[in-house]
Design a binder for these strands. Structure first.
Lengths: 189, 189
DNA sequence: GCGGCGCATGAACCCGGGTTCAGCCGCCGA
DNA sequence: TCGGCGGCTGAACCCGGGTTCATGCGCCGC
C-alpha cells in the first residue's frame, strides 16, 4: 500500500529514531541493561509497555502446551517488540547482553495521534513487518526445514553466528537433533 | 498499538465500507462478476490495482518451484487483497462465483493521504491482519496438521463446508491424501 | 443411459523429523 | 586441577506425512 521508495534508512530504523527523539524529549528514555538470558516478557502476561531494543539480541518465542519452545523471531541490534497483540501470545528473552527501553503504550499512542510524520513512519514499519511475516509464512508453508536453513544462511549469515544451534533449530521449527542431521547432510553431500 | 475497543463493526468491514463510499463518489466502483475458478492474480505478475471482494470466495496461494500449491489464506464474502507486497509472491483464484472490484493503488494511496478517518480505518485493518497472521505463524510453528485442522473446524465451521477437501489440505500445509488420513483418525478415534 | 473426468479415499512403501539414550567437548567454578 | 554441567552430535527406533497406484463416487455431456 506504500510507495516502494528506495529509502536510505530502513523502516524500523526510521521509526526508532523518531521514537527515541520523542521519548528523550519527554524524559522517558531510560536504557535498562539486561544480561544475557533475561526473561523480558512472559507469554500470556499482558504488558502496558512497548519495548525498544537499542543494542543486543532478543528472541521472541512461543511455548506450546506440551512444553516445547518455538521461536517466532529474533530482534537483532535494534528493534521494536510487543506491539503485535494485546494478549501477548509470546515471550521474550535476551540472548546477549542487551539495552532495552520500556515505553508506556498509552504514551506511544498519544504521540501517534499528534504527529503525522511519526504516524507515517509507524505505517511504513508495520508494512515492513507484514512483508517479513508474509515471507516467513510462505517459507513455513512451502519449504522444508532444510530449505529454510539454507535460505537463512544466505540472508542472515551474521545472525546465525550469534545463535546457539538449539535456537536456530527452534526458529526453523524443528528440534536441535533434527537440525544436527540437516547440517550433516549439507556437509557430507 | 491500537486501543482494543470492542467495535460493533470488524476492522475489514469498516475499511471496506469507507472505500466503497469513496470509490462510488469517484465513479470507480465497477463490480466485475467472476465465475468460480477465475484466475484473478498470477503469482509473480505485479498489479497496479488493489482488489476488493464484495461477495463470493477467493483463495490466495503460493506455487512452489516444484509445482505444488499451498494456500496462504481465504478471502470470504468480503475483503481486500493484493495490498501486501509489491512483487506479488502469491496468486489468487475464485472458488465460488464472486464479485470483485479493482481499484488503482495510486488512487487508494491518494485517498489515504487526504483522509484521516480512512487512514485510521486502514491502520486498524492492518493491525487486524497482522494479528491474524501472527496466529497463523504460531500454528504453523507449534501445531501439527491435525491440531490445525481441529482449530479450523472450531473457528471456521462455515468456511470448511464451502471448501474442497484438497483446498483445506493445501491450507493446512499437507496433501489431500494426508488430510484424508487425519479425518479418518478423527472419525475412528 | 452411458462413458468420462475429477475429487475423495484406501493401501503400501519411503523418508524426514521426533524421541530417547549415550558419548563428547568446552566452560566454569570449587 | 578436577568435577560437573550444558550444548552439540551420533545412533537407533517410531511416527506422521509424502508418493504412488488403484478404487469408488458424483457430476456432466453426449
Amino acid at each position: 500500500m506504500n510507495p516502494g521508495s528506495a529509502a536510505e534508512e530502513s523502516a524500523p530504523e526510521a521509526l526508532l529514531r523518531q521514537i527515541r527523539i520523542k521519548a528523550r524529549a519527554d524524559e522517558l528514555w531510560h536504557l535498562r541493561d539486561c544480561p544475557a538470558g533475561t526473561q523480558v516478557l512472559v507469554q500470556g502476561v499482558a504488558t502496558p509497555d512497548l519495548f525498544v531494543l537499542q543494542g543486543g539480541l532478543v528472541k521472541l518465542d512461543y511455548l506450546t502446551p506440551d512444553g516445547r519452545e518455538r521461536i517466532k523471531s529474533f530482534i537483532v541490534d535494534r528493534g521494536l517488540f510487543a506491539i503485535e497483540d494485546a494478549d501477548l501470545s509470546f515471550g521474550a528473552r535476551t540472548l546477549e547482553p542487551s539495552q532495552i527501553v520500556r515505553l508506556p503504550i498509552g504514551w506511544a499512542r498519544a504521540q501517534l495521534a499528534q504527529d503525522m510524520v511519526l504516524r507515517q513512519a509507524y505505517a511504513d514499519f508495520t508494512d515492513w513487518l507484514r512483508l517479513r511475516k508474509a515471507r516467513r509464512e510462505q517459507l513455513l508453508l512451502c519449504a522444508s526445514a532444510e530449505e529454510r536453513y539454507r535460505l537463512l544462511c544466505e540472508h542472515e549469515p551474521g545472525l546465525i553466528r550469534r545463535l546457539s544451534q538449539g535456537d536456530i533449530a527452534r526458529y526453523l521449527g524443528i528440534t536441535p537433533v533434527a537440525f544436527s542431521r540437516i547440517k550433516r547432510r549439507l556437509r557430507g553431500g
